[in-house]
Design a binder for these strands. Structure first.
Lengths: 266, 266
DNA sequence: CGGCAGATTGACCATAGTCAATGGCAGTGG
DNA sequence: CCACTGCCATTGACTATGGTCAATCTGCCG
């Protein structure tokens, strides 16, 4: 993957088509499906996010059951909520395209971003605990999600052992992710937190076939600050400092990493 | 539950026997079992922590399967590890008596307490993600745990739908707990964090039949500080301040809450 | 009784929060 | 198409919270 400067921020889906040759094709097909409401038998199999999605644990023999379960797609416009804290819990959501933030609110009015989710990642696990969501999930850009009713997932887990195991892994990964984040919040300086955040985003972009060195932040400085437990000004200052040191190039929401090693050892 | 001062800190198990009339009895029976290595058929049913344990989701008809699964108890001495980061993941553990801390280590050497677990709570969920534990679980006092091999749990989940659901809830609760903790770490002042910590411990002690207003901290100031993302001195100062204000009475590891309302609104 | 880990308290300092002013960009409407 | 408007970001000056270092104290355990 070659670093490149970004003239005009292209939408996520079209950034590095070369990495996924079949990507544009799939996208065109799915577009057609949506407008015609046609639901072919193996929609999941063709999803470009299949590799990351929970559904990948279902062997091809049981594809039909899977497609039966994944019965709706939803489009969520930028700024809209997929679900809100307090909503009754129905389904898990796999992000098909776009990105989200999850926000929890403190009784006193303060609220805090607990995570950013990219395409292929799963939303809604928090709702399982008490049959009620505990956070808001807000789209950071126009996005689409597959919704998988949880009782259907649990049914399917009874038949498909690998799916059961995958679901458990998924939830456990979320637990591990959060304890890593706590380590971050509790132990590191503000600058180290920002650096870690950039590196984390970088690897996740790479996993999705985008450049690890040049990407667009879909969230504001304030959201980053909330996520990392600091003020937006501190985020801004950290980025400015990194640029002064020659470790990154910042241009608004576009970030280019020019010295990952320096960021790592902060 | 009546507040009372503590002359000599009694072990957790014998603090409020009145709350659980059958408690001492159960303890004596379990003691006998351990020394004689006798494993009666329905050990789980008689466990005093049954109400909190994952095993409570197994209907009585399937008790036998359950008891077959829960095949070992382990004693862990204070300061010893139940498992360590990097250990291959075999089992989930239900704490039968005692308490633990979980600690994650940062490559740079710093480490961070991610949680404190009391009797009835579950340890080891982090290992599911990658078949390898990601944190150390260290006993804060001499403790006993039931070990439940995870493949057995997954087998049993295929037969027992309620157990499957309970397991999912348990994991989701952990996710929610951690995002609450992040809110705490990121959003609140040092004093507010300490206050929240005390209140949280208080309700968990109450759930277990102990006084909500008077309890013993099993962990050091340093461990509390690590958990809450601050220095041990800051914890100490916060407790001193609360005492000066007349909100709590501190005597080493013994805490008495005398004005919960004041702590709540910090 | 001595030694040591844990806890408390104080003095000083640095990091990051707060307040404020300014600059840039994108989306909207004339 | 351009100008306006509001949101987002940047930067500076000052402040306060909490970290650091150090001295002392307490209580527990051998």
């Amino acid at each position: 993957m070659i670093p490149r400067t970004i003239e005009s921020p292209a939408p996520l889906e079209t950034r590095h088509p070369a990495a996924h040759p079949q990507l544009r094709l799939v996208r065109d097909i799915t577009q057609a499906r949506q407008t015609t409401s046609l639901i072919p038998s193996s929609q999941c199999a063709n999803c470009m996010m299949h590799w990351a999605c929970i559904a990948s644990a279902v062997p091809s023999a049981q594809r039909e059951q899977l497609d039966h379960m994944v019965h709706t797609w939803r489009k969520i416009a930028r700024g809209e909520a997929l679900f809100r804290a307090g909503d009754t819990f129905h389904a898990l959501y796999a992000i098909r395209s776009g990105s989200f933030k999850t926000v929890v609110s403190h009784p006193n009015g303060a609220n805090h971003v607990t995570g950013f989710q990219l395409a292929g990642e799963t939303l809604g696990l928090d709702g399982i605990a008490a049959d009620r969501h505990t956070c808001d999930a807000i789209a950071l850009e126009d996005s689409t999600v597959c919704s998988m009713p949880f009782h259907c997932i649990e049914d399917l887990c009874q038949d498909i052992r690998p799916l059961q195991h995958r679901l458990h892994q998924l939830m456990a990964e979320e637990i591990v992710r959060e304890s890593g984040l706590m380590l971050l919040l509790a132990g590191l300086s503000a600058e180290a937190r920002v650096a870690t955040f950039l590196l984390n985003l970088s690897t996740r972009m790479q996993d999705r076939g985008y450049s690890a060195l040049s990407f667009t932040l879909r969230m504001t400085r304030e959201e980053i600050g909330s996520y990392l437990g600091m003020q937006l000004e501190t985020v801004s200052r950290a980025l400015s400092r990194f640029q002064r040191e020659g470790w990154i190039i910042v241009s608004g929401k576009n970030i280019e990493l020019t010295d990952m090693a320096a960021l790592t050892e902060l």
